[in-house]
Write a protein that binds this DNA or RNA. Structure first.
Length: 616
DNA sequence: TTCGAACGGCTTTTT
DNA sequence: GCCGTTCGAA
């Protein structure tokens, strides 16, 4: 265990305290990842079987990196580790146990877009006007309720106003429809396991036995559902180790409950508390700036960060007239720093509060031929054309998935319009069939026009054909054949606009992603591919080998570090983000977000803003 | 009945 | 800048 002499005494303590509950309060740059990695390697090296470890991280990227490092320490044993994001780990568990919950193992996973569409269609059916009740707000409330493990009945009994009453109705129908579609949303991936464990004590016990040692990274960003889930799993052995920093809790909007970390010792009074306060990442100047910011927050665990690093260079403030000149000032400084410090573009990151801010920055960077990589924005797997093609695959895997069906029933155009779809839906619901099953009886459906009927019959025989082919072709052949038959690549080509060509390129890229996936994993299936892509984050895709400046939101920056950092748009209203109901709690979260940004910096920090009032 | 063009509204952060 | 809605043409 040679790795154990590469750490300081506090870190060593954190690595070796493997029995019982432990909370590690780890400041930025304090070697948190190192501790987690070594802790797992240590557990394995003292004889704990790797399959008894459950390690939950915030991003897949973090999980993969850690897994790699653990493999270096302990070898192939690490393969048996259950390590990943909450969502991917519990999706995996649900694939195994789905039938106990009345779901098929091939369930679809709905992302935000799919959920919104489903909610809109439910509101239509229930005659709830979307002008009066914003579907997004409804979706947000439902998600909120789920995060807090509040089921429809309870939600209905607590609703205080008309909006909540309507939401309660929609919520109940939403749950019913998801089940009919054999689909789960992101929140279900957390609350369905709770449901499973509550109703099947035996299964809970078997997982308690299995996961004797549980580790959770970024604990400050867990929500109520995750908390309940962990509590259930750790109940028997109580070997639960949480790592986090309340000062870096920035996902309140997603239901993260900072109380989880603040009150850990209340749930586990015997918990060992370990503080990691020595920072190895940043210069003294940067750390002190971060400290000045965060100490304004009232609600936090007191801590005292320190470093042996040098003072370093002072922070530079760039005051600009508008966003364009802000971009230009950043570019000037990038060139100067690259020259002066002999660094590369990949050592630099530009951060902002909202994705929309990346536009102007991109323009300026492109003009100056500085290579850049963007994390976030419109994600690849969210693009319309990609989602459309994926919807066909989802339907092949899960024929009950009516949402995916509705997405592609008339894409590309088959002359099946709104009215024809209504007829089909009526037919399907009177026969309690899913839409993709119902369409195979297209010739028996009365109502639709001739054109629509032909389209339906064609679509139905196409499904039949590919359902057969699915067993005969490899996933990569199958996907190519399907896209070919759809003819969308040619449609884009005929259209010829730059947008259409970009879409064409995206579909190509999707096909190569499938081939690549199949090549990397010998027993890859369409199912596993779909699961993978529905749970990837943008940060996961980020490749730090490529020599480019990284652009991203402050949220995505969590867990990363860069020698040079620019934080842009430091204006009232943008950072902190202006929101009519910005209260103290939210303001503190904005402050933590800024804190996260500052503490990503190793050597030199630039802060930029537009002085609109004085410069106009 | 379907489809494409034009218009207006809104827009935080993400697994 | 993106999405849904509306409206007119085929």
């Amino acid at each position: 265990m040679t790795f154990l002499n590469k750490v300081n005494s506090r870190q060593l303590e954190a690595i070796k305290a493997v029995q019982g509950p432990v909370i590690i309060v780890a400041g930025p740059g304090s070697g948190k990842t190192r501790v987690l990695t070594y802790r797992i390697a240590y557990l394995i090296s003292i004889g704990v079987p790797a399959y008894q470890l459950l390690a939950l991280t915030f991003t897949n990227k973090a999980a993969n990196e850690m897994k790699e490092r653990i493999t270096q320490q302990v070898g192939e044993k690490s393969k048996q580790l259950w390590m990943g994001t909450f969502h991917s780990i519990f999706a995996r568990l649900l694939r195994i146990e789905a039938d106990r919950l009345g779901f098929g193992k091939n369930f679809s996973i709905y992302d935000t877009q799919d959920r919104l569409r489903l909610i809109q269609s439910i509101m239509n059916d229930l005659h709830i006007p979307s002008q009066q009740y914003n579907p997004q707000a409804v979706m947000y409330r439902i998600s909120r309720a789920k995060n807090q493990v509040i089921l429809p009945e309870e939600y209905a009994s607590q609703s205080l106003d008309l909006f909540e009453e309507k939401t309660a109705k929609i919520y109940a129908e939403y749950v019913r429809r998801l089940k009919l579609n054999n689909a789960m949303d992101f929140d279900d991936l957390l609350i369905k396991p709770i449901e499973l464990f509550n109703h099947h004590k035996k299964i809970l016990e078997s997982y308690q036995e299995r996961f004797r040692f549980i580790l959770i990274d970024e604990y400050q960003d867990t929500n109520r559902a995750q908390y309940v889930l962990l509590k259930l799993l750790a109940e028997k052995y109580k070997n639960i180790c949480v790592v986090g920093d309340d000062a870096q809790s920035i996902y309140g909007f997603r239901g993260a409950d900072i109380r989880n970390i603040l009150e850990f010792t209340r749930d586990y009074p015997e918990a060992k508390i370990i503080h990691l306060e020595q920072n190895y990442r940043s210069t003294r100047a940067i750390l002190s700036a971060a400290d000045q910011v965060i100490k304004k927050n009232v609600n936090q665990i007191p801590k005292n960060l320190w470093t042996e690093n040098l003072d370093g260079e002072p922070i530079t403030i760039l005051e600009c007239v508008d966003d364009k000149s802000e971009g230009e000032a950043i570019v000037r400084n990038i060139f100067r720093e690259v020259e002066r410090l002999k660094i590369q573009f990949k050592d630099i990151a530009i951060m902002y509060r909202t994705n929309a801010q990346s536009r102007t920055l991109e323009d300026v960077l492109r003009k100056n031929t500085i290579p850049y990589a963007i994390i976030g924005g419109i994600e690849f797997y969210q693009r319309k054309e990609v989602k459309d093609v994926l919807a066909y695959f989802r339907l092949l895997v899960n024929p009950q998935d009516d949402e995916s069906f509705l997405r592609i029933v008339n894409y590309p155009n088959r002359g099946i319009g709104e009215v024809a779809v209504r007829h089909l839906r009526n037919f399907a619901s009177t026969n309690s069939q899913s839409l993709s099953v119902a369409i195979s009886s297209a010739d028996q459906i009365n109502g639709p026009a001739k054109k629509a009927k032909t389209g339906m019959i064609n679509l139905s025989s196409m499904f039949e054909k590919y359902r057969k082919l699915k067993n005969e072709l490899s996933m990569s052949e199958l996907s190519r054949a399907l896209v070919d038959e759809l003819g969308i690549l040619n449609l884009f080509k005929e259209e010829g606009t730059p947008e259409a060509m970009a879409r064409r390129e995206n579909v190509h890229e999707l096909l190569s992603a499938i081939s690549e996936f199949a090549a990397e994993q010998p027993n890859a299936t369409l199912e596993s591919f779909l699961q993978e892509v529905s749970l990837v984050a943008d940060v996961d895709e980020w490749d730090n080998e490529f020599n480019a400046v990284t652009l991203m939101t402050l949220h995505s920056a969590k867990g990363l570090e860069f020698p040079i950092v620019f934080i842009t748009g430091l204006e009232e209203g943008l950072l902190p983000y202006y929101n009519s109901s910005l209260d103290t709690v939210e303001l503190e979260e904005e402050r933590r977000l800024f804190y996260v940004g500052i503490t990503r910096t190793m050597n030199k920090l630039f802060l930029s803003w537009e002085d609109i009032i004085h410069n106009r």
